[in-house]
């Protein structure tokens, strides 16, 4: 049975993003979904799991999560190198970067698994629609969603990104490469929830989990919403 670990759902649950996992449960009902709370030892630290998910957190909780995961940094590196699927959405991906800089210039050290850092601007909320593409073998998957965040990320993700940007922006307003990627680690600020809004992306994740011919829950309706939004985003003029 596939083991899917959801890290810190009691705090990592902003913007409806836990529905990435609720929806995966409906697409892949036979997997074992493990919820790990802040005061518990993550399952991945004790045994191999097939997937780890962590969603967007309030800033105070993001800092607690960094503190909790810091002693597991080497194990996380090992897990990534083994090809475990990791999906970090919203500001959860910043936990895996080098540091987060506050408005006052102070820095919070992060796990350092990526050579990228985040800058917070807490009175400057950044909102934009997003569309982009990624490769799934020979197929190009189109992605739609939204960004809504206080932070921007900086650093060279030219060889370690997730999506090529069509509309909106990448890890910062000047970037055309969205997200952080290393093997099957996928970090992105694209909200939606991304797995709900993008059935091809959900099928891609399911394939990474070893599902041979994946189908998503309520496929016809999911595809209908996806196509409407693809069409709309195509016509939309997005200024960042």
């Amino acid at each position: 049975m596939r083991k899917i670990e959801i890290l810190y759902p009691e705090v990592g649950n902003l913007f409806g993003d836990l529905f990435n996992m609720n929806y995966l449960k409906q697409c892949l009902p036979d997997a074992d979904y493990i919820e790990t709370h802040l005061n518990e030892t993550p399952r991945f630290a004790q045994e191999d799991v097939d997937m780890i998910y962590i969603g967007p957190l309030p800033e105070y909780a993001q800092e607690i999560a960094i503190e909790k995961l810091m002693p597991l940094k080497e194990r996380l590196e090992e897990v990534i190198d083994k090809g475990t699927v990791i999906l970090a959405t919203g500001n959860a991906q910043e936990i895996f970067g080098s540091y987060i800089e506050n408005d006052d210039g102070s820095k919070i050290q992060c796990l350092g698994l990526f050579d990228a850092y985040a800058k917070r601007k807490m009175m400057d909320r950044f909102n934009t629609p997003f569309s982009g593409t990624m490769k799934d073998g020979d197929e190009t998957i189109r992605i739609v969603g939204f960004k809504s965040q206080f932070t921007q990320m900086y650093g060279d993700n030219g060889n370690s990104y997730v999506f090529d940007v069509e509309k909106g922006c990448g890890i910062n307003p000047e970037s055309k490469k969205e997200g952080l990627r290393r093997k099957n680690f996928i970090g992105t600020n694209v909200l939606g929830p991304i797995m709900i809004m993008n059935p091809p992306f959900t099928r891609y994740i399911m394939k990474l989990l070893g599902v041979a011919q994946p189908t998503v829950a309520f496929e016809e309706d999911a595809e209908a919403c996806y196509r409407i939004r693809l069409d709309e985003f195509e016509k939309m003029n997005v200024e960042v």
Binding site: F15, G16, D17
Partner: peptide, 10 residues
């Protein structure tokens, strides 16, 4: 043209 609907999953 489009609005962020993520709140419906909250």
């Amino acid at each position: 043209d489009s609005e962020n609907l993520t709140y419906i999953y909250d």
